[in-house]
Amino acid sequence: MYDASGVRLHAGRQAELLNQIVCELPPEHPVSNCRPLRDSLGHTPLQVAAGAILGCIVAFLMRSSS
């Protein structure tokens, strides 16, 4: 959960900013021909919380059905 909401989310935000910088470079610049970085890496805190709650519910239902 820490990785999904912290490290990966911030890496995605940095990738988004780097993509904007590369788009502003002149076409003759060697970096302007590179493919864009993936910027959808992490999850928002709300998505992480929803996943944790869903995981707890599924675990409870699996425990109850046995």
Rank of each mutant, 00 (worst) to 15 (best):
Q47G: 02
I57C: 12
G51R: 14
A59H: 06
D39S: 14
I53W: 11
Y2H: 05
R13K: 13
D39H: 04
P36A: 09
Y2Q: 06
S40Q: 13
A15W: 06
A49R: 13
V58G: 00
A49C: 12
G42T: 02
A4K: 12
L41C: 02
S32Q: 03
Q47T: 14
S32N: 08
L25P: 01
H43Q: 14
C56I: 15
R63P: 00
V7G: 00
Q20Y: 02
D39N: 11
R38M: 06
G42A: 03
L61S: 03
S5N: 05
I53S: 10
L61H: 01
A11S: 09
A59K: 06
S32Y: 02
L25Q: 08
R8W: 10
C56K: 03
I53T: 07
V22N: 04
N19W: 03
A52W: 08
R38S: 04
P26H: 02
Q47N: 04
L18C: 07
E28Q: 11
I21H: 02
G55A: 07
C34P: 01
P27V: 07
I21V: 15
V58N: 00
G6K: 07
L25I: 02
F60P: 00
M1H: 06
S40K: 15
P26C: 13
E16R: 15
N33W: 00
S66R: 15
V58R: 04
I21K: 05
L18K: 05
S5G: 15
L18F: 13
A49S: 12
V58Y: 03
E24D: 08
R35D: 02
E24A: 14
S40F: 00
L41Y: 04
G6H: 02
D3V: 14
C23A: 15
G51L: 07
I57K: 06
L18M: 13
G6E: 09
M62N: 03
N19M: 12
L46W: 04
C34E: 09
G55K: 00
L9C: 01
Q47I: 09
A15Y: 10
R13C: 01
L61I: 09
H29Y: 05
S66D: 09
Q20L: 12
H43P: 00
N19Q: 08
S66V: 15
C34A: 06
P45G: 03
L25A: 02
N19L: 07
A15L: 07
Q14N: 09
F60G: 11
A49M: 13
A52C: 10
G55E: 03
R63N: 10
A52Y: 08
P27A: 10
A4Y: 05
I57S: 08
A49K: 13
N33E: 07
Y2A: 10
